[in-house]
Design a protein around this nucleic acid. Structure first.
Length: 325
DNA sequence: AAGACGAAAGTGGTTGA
DNA sequence: TCAACAACTTTCGTCTT
């Protein structure tokens, strides 16, 4: 053995040093002892008794799982013992002597006790697992409300996102992914489902997770949960931009008109909806004299001025004369 | 001087072999 | 898995108001 010293967990913690409560819980998933009363983490680095492998999908699980209960060193025979037959006869069918009978009786009694311990352990394990998932769920749901609050999202989005997350948990999709990544993705799915124009970027910012990660989790979620989500229409962005630019209803109305003609002329397909919406908003602002700079709109729409210019050029060339003010 | 314009090169994601 | 591709971004110089 190496001489490396691992800060050992206190051998037998009985009370929480923080609040004195004796309601402690061992969480093998996180390798911690946690006070159920105040949440104080008393000791880290417990030994994990779960399998030493991780499986990320059913195929891997099937490949890695081994048949039978795992070998354990806490039972004298490593769990490989055989139960003794209940007939009072030996292997040749001869009756046993009273001495042998007594010995077997003691053995049976001991085996019953052992079975009892097994059952207890099984229940302990079950309770521990459901506890851990419950705590994870609670954490995830609080993350979802955090994001929703940061973005000022309406309550129905919060509800939808929670339902999506619960589904993901039920389908065992969280394993091997970060809870925060999936919660952010769930919020994004909820927004898209409800037709709310929120970009991945915004969600990523509100949740402190990079856009790539959120996007990956998002694609994973909609694939595994069989969601069909149509791409957001540019018109869904118009209202948002108008609000943020504090433009009047008239401007918004014209922007919608421009979009409608653009759709009819098939100028919208293949283009990013934000770019088109931004360009339409820009044109509308110019037409009404309530001029906004390209830079202002670009910043809000989160596209570059160049993109707005390109879309704007296309739009003006093709449909300028069709829009009646 | 700020804003608009446009060319050119670079980036990240999608698609089809 | 990889190359081709379109959309978009970045950067920068020039023109317009």
């Amino acid at each position: 053995m190496s001489a490396e010293r691992v800060p050992a967990a206190p051998a037998r913690v009985q009370q929480c040093p923080e609040c004195g409560s004796d309601r402690l819980m061992r969480d093998y998933e996180c390798a911690e002892i946690v006070c159920m009363n105040c949440g104080f983490v008393i000791a880290a680095k417990l030994t994990d008794r779960g399998p030493e492998w991780r499986a990320f999908n059913a195929e891997q699980r099937a490949k890695r799982a081994r048949v039978g209960a795992p070998l354990t060193y806490t039972i004298h025979d490593k769990g490989l013992s055989t139960m003794i037959d209940w007939h009072d006869r030996d292997v040749y069918g001869k009756r046993l002597s009273p001495g042998q009978k007594a010995q077997i009786y003691r053995l049976r009694k001991w085996q019953r006790r052992k079975a009892q311990i097994y059952r207890l352990r099984k229940w302990q394990r079950r309770i521990r697992v459901s506890d851990a998932t419950e705590r994870n769920l609670a954490f995830a749901l609080s993350e979802i409300s955090k994001i929703a609050n940061a973005l000022n999202l309406p309550k129905n989005i919060l509800e939808t996102a929670s339902v999506i997350y619960r589904r993901a948990v039920k389908e065992r999709l969280i394993r091997g992914r970060s809870i925060q990544g999936v919660t952010a993705a769930a919020v994004y799915v909820a927004c898209r489902q409800c037709g709310l124009a929120r970009t991945l970027e915004e969600i990523a910012q509100a949740s402190n997770i990079n856009k790539k990660e959120v996007g990956r989790s998002y694609r994973f979620l909609i694939k595994e949960l069989d969601y069909f989500i149509p791409p957001l229409k540019p018109s869904q962005y118009i209202a948002k931009f108008s609000n943020q630019l504090t433009m009047q209803g008239k401007v918004e109305e014209i922007a919608h008109k421009i979009l409608k003609s653009a759709r009819e002329l098939k100028l919208t397909s293949g283009r990013g909806p934000t770019g088109i919406a931004a360009a339409a908003s820009y044109i509308a602002s110019v037409l009404t004299g309530e001029r906004k700079t390209q830079r202002e709109i670009a910043e809000i729409a989160q596209v570059t001025e160049v993109t707005i210019r390109n879309r704007y050029k296309e739009l003006v060339e093709r449909l300028m004369f069709e829009v009646t003010i």
